[in-house]
Nucleic acid binder design. Structure first.
Lengths: 255, 255
DNA sequence: CCTCCTGGTTGACCCTGATCATCCTGCAAG
DNA sequence: CTTGCAGGATGATCAGGGTCAACCAGGAGG
């Protein structure tokens, strides 16, 4: 536990990393914003002290104020179903935006919780909107990001509707692998910041099934896993498993 | 089959319904656009001749040019998976936008096919973007709509990941019922424009299961269904079924 | 060092829903 | 009227993965 007051000399410079120096520049909202306009954008960004594991960025039902960009660490978002159970809606890595689903409703539709020590940039949405007229690439990029989000969700729907347990976990690991790779981390060895419980919840599987499939993958020499550490040995195999090729009997080719 | 050339006196006035007279105004993109700016928007809208059942608005892989607003009828969108099978990603009713998932990628990520005779407004996206500087409420409304789309997809993920066959179909019918209601149609009797096949595909169920659940609902006097016609008798029951209340044993309340 | 506790693994069993096969129904074309 | 056919319904069987129960491993705290 740290003290609340400002922590001046040490943390401040670390927190003040400018967008133009940020390694995530290419993956984040500022993409396409000109050098000159970047200052305008940076002025509204609130850079927070790192969020500790288990702490919230925001909670479901809270009035919507800001969207957040993950700078380092990872965040899980989840909703509560009518009967109070958790539904994990996503895991967010550095460069990804969190809170987009709240723009339309005015309140947060999900809760965002840090899975590990995480730092984020907070973008007050009202101020962001005000910049749109001066930086037209800003709304354009936001819409593009949201479009990709929709696309991603559709992939997930296919996964949940059509894929087997093995296909789901393989797809999931591949997604993590490529996303981590794009961010400069190793794409064949990494630590899972989320529990088996979260993974299962996200993939529509029971924890036990996640465990079993992990061991099956291990038996087949596709990867090694011990606790949260994953080492992928055979990326090709993983890809083969993930794109499900259950022999379609006669290709019904619905109308 | 009609001739290609203009069809002047009869069709033109019907096709030229202005946004301000459109019953879908409240549900569509122009919401929030001022009376004065509406003309600017209308100038870029291409109103097409009705699309016949089975015809395409666009197909997967085509370069992205426009988004579409459904004016009447209905549209299904679907992608093809690696092995050539169909994955239905959504059904679109009047007032809803189609093609949003292509903005980020430059090509259409899904195919949009009319389920019945359908009329749409085509909005060339480049021109739409150019209007943003003059009509700031336009990008704001678009982002809001996309945010709701993301939200909707998340609900669907829950459905696919956690709900039983009965819960899925009940949720689906309720969604249709309310959406049709909002558009001035009856919310307790309607015709399904999509086949059992499409429904099953969308909900992650086999056709046979959809059939069986329909008959089960009928046995329980929740609704009557013959072929495509659905009459809901007990909306409350349907709601009860849809919000799954499988007694959670001990509420694992994952961390 | 022992204890507790959370998160993870493994085994036994069962149930929901997929698959396969057959049949039914309404409709369009000849 | 007959034929053909797509879409839909229904029954029998089977399996993937959920559920329950027990067990294990590592880290925190006394």
């Amino acid at each position: 536990m740290q003290k609340d007051p400002a922590i001046p000399q040490f943390d401040l410079p670390r927190l003040r990393i400018a967008c133009r120096e940020c390694t995530l520049f290419q993956l984040c909202l500022p993409l396409g914003v000109s050098e000159a306009d970047l200052d305008l954008l940076e002025n509204i960004i609130k850079r927070r002290r790192p969020v500790q594991r288990g702490e919230y960025l925001f909670q479901m039902g809270e009035p919507f104020e800001s969207i957040f960009a993950v700078r380092s660490g990872s965040v899980k978002t989840y909703t509560l179903t009518e009967d109070g159970r958790e539904q994990v809606t996503g895991f967010h890595l550095p460069g990804e935006l969190v809170g987009l689903d709240a723009i339309g409703g005015g309140r947060h539709a999900c809760t965002a919780k840090a899975l590990e020590t995480t730092s984020v940039c907070e973008l007050p949405y009202n101020q962001l909107e005000e910049l749109w007229s001066r930086i037209p690439s800003l709304p354009r990029q936001l819409v593009r990001i949201m479009s990709k989000e929709v696309l991603h969700d559709q992939t997930l729907m296919t996964l949940l509707g059509k894929k087997s347990a093995e296909e789901r976990l393989a797809s999931y690991l591949l997604s993590l692998s490529t996303r981590l790779g794009q961010r400069g981390f190793s794409s064949h060895e990494f630590n899972l910041s989320m529990s088996r419980n979260d993974i299962g919840n996200y993939l529509g599987l029971a924890v036990e099934t996640v465990s079993r499939v992990f061991t099956r993958f291990q038996d087949e020499k596709v990867l090694t896993v011990q606790r949260r550490n994953v080492r992928i040995h055979d990326l090709t195999a993983l890809r083969r498993i993930s794109s499900y090729s259950n022999i379609p009997r006669a290709c019904p080719s619905a109308n």
